[in-house]
Design a binder for these strands. Sequence first.
DNA 1: TAATTTTCATAGGCTAAGGCTATCTAAACT
DNA 2: AGTTTAGATAGCCTTAGCCTATGAAAATTA
Lengths: 297, 297
Amino acid sequence: MKITLRQVEIFVAVADAGHFGRAAEALEISQPTVSQEVSRLERALGVALLDRSGRSAKLTQAGEAMATEGRQLLTHANQVVREVQLYEPSRIRTARIVASPSVVNRLLPAVISRAEQSLSSVRIEDVLVDTGGVTARLVSEHADIGLGRFLDATEGYESEVIVREQVFVAISRKHPLANAAHLELPELGDLPLLLWPREQNPAYFDYLLEICTSRGLSPLLLVSPPRIVGSRLYLLSESRAFSLVSAALIGHLPEDLIAIPLAQPATLALEMQWRSSDNRPQLTALRDLIREVASAG
Amino acid sequence: MKITLRQVEIFVAVADAGHFGRAAEALEISQPTVSQEVSRLERALGVALLDRSGRSAKLTQAGEAMATEGRQLLTHANQVVREVQLYEPSRIRTARIVASPSVVNRLLPAVISRAEQSLSSVRIEDVLVDTGGVTARLVSEHADIGLGRFLDATEGYESEVIVREQVFVAISRKHPLANAAHLELPELGDLPLLLWPREQNPAYFDYLLEICTSRGLSPLLLVSPPRIVGSRLYLLSESRAFSLVSAALIGHLPEDLIAIPLAQPATLALEMQWRSSDNRPQLTALRDLIREVASAG
DNA sequence: TAATTTTCATAGGCTAAGGCTATCTAAACT
DNA sequence: AGTTTAGATAGCCTTAGCCTATGAAAATTA
């Protein structure tokens, strides 16, 4: 059997923490996994690294050696990665992203910062913001990766749901129902639903409306002026109305709004889209990173 | 995503060979696996390592860097393993093996040489040879690992089949049937079956006999003198008789004998046994190695 | 330039490494 | 002795790393 960088990483964490449980926390994995992988490393080496007689993680002499050497090996590995990324040879060093406004606000900051940390070979150059025309921007070659809801399936383009989020009702804190644990939509009575003009993204528009009607509410509609991108919620603060928002937006609500779960839950999918033929490693890696960030919540 | 030592190893092989297919051969894996793992490495790095425009594996600048750095990283990793194995702390540096004669001859040489190469933490000290009493030697603490056929299941001891081999008829090259592609046992007529004294390993003895009777041959028995361990086959050269042997022995037959497959195939299991409580990494590692050698044929 | 060969990529399936939760055992502290 | 704490064990799930079979494209030959 052979040793793995992962096993070394885990063992080093244990050596650092002097403790399996704390090592597990530090690595954000479970304690049994740490136990298991340390044992695997020991049997791959054929050497006892820890003295299990007590209940603390005391290193044997070999363990000390492994910790020291292991740290160096991990550093070396990271060094190699950074080194190689400097030689990025492709003419296209930069990735261009189109995204709908809400996505831009919440997902992209994390993506950009993580990309700077660990993907020195990719630079995110343009970020286009477009509510309806995400797919169109891909097709017209203005962007390499599209992010949004209810994107158009198009020949030659892959699209994939990267996360599904719970739908919440956004409403003024002053509303009588503001403190409810969850909400049956009909309780809202004739409070109007704030939406953007349908043409901007008809499928999305219809889906939110469908959520209401299928739960027994045929709401009045309050349509926001076109082109007031990203500010639907601020408009909501001003008006007596409610809206439906995804879980990820909860942290970004204006002060005077509150998000309440639906009694009958519904979800909203966030999709990523790209040219099928585009398998440049820089972009594949960036797509991987976006998936990771999205599913980390 | 993170890079793996294995991915680096595979990429380095490609760089060395200048060719996916030949790299696959060198690593003894399939070509698609090489393709796949190289792509994975590229996307983990976010960098193109190879120029795929032609049909040869031309390295990009980043690829050159990865090859050089990668070779160093692999060397470093091996170095770490050797380094750590020097500090083997356990008092029991040595493993003691009991095995039946045929196993000693064919399996152990490979095990010992592989252990010296890659398990510097383990030294195989005693090799006891005992036809019948393998389990007894474990129980009496004379050995740590037992290898043989039809071992006795005993409380507190694990045992495990490590390989199943085809059974062949061993017979003189001068026998009229010596050139048959395969053999119905009754064709042997009243040629006697050479076996050791039943007491040495009754279950094994009975099993071989059962193979004959279930195929319609109730052979005469020629019983070898006790304690002539490992020489059943040489005895066979001298006498007009046949015997049943496992596939692994074919290469080790005396010149004047030949091995013929059975028309109705049968198999023979080789087992490994050890104290359940014995999980010293040195021995766990050695058991892993034995499994590997056994299944590699 | 059309056919053939060579070489890498893609598709789909299997196995085991690496992850999880739940639970057990044993050391250490009242 | 009883309780708490830490690590090991058991049983399950998901996906990396492997396979075979097949496809597509570059290079070679007819």
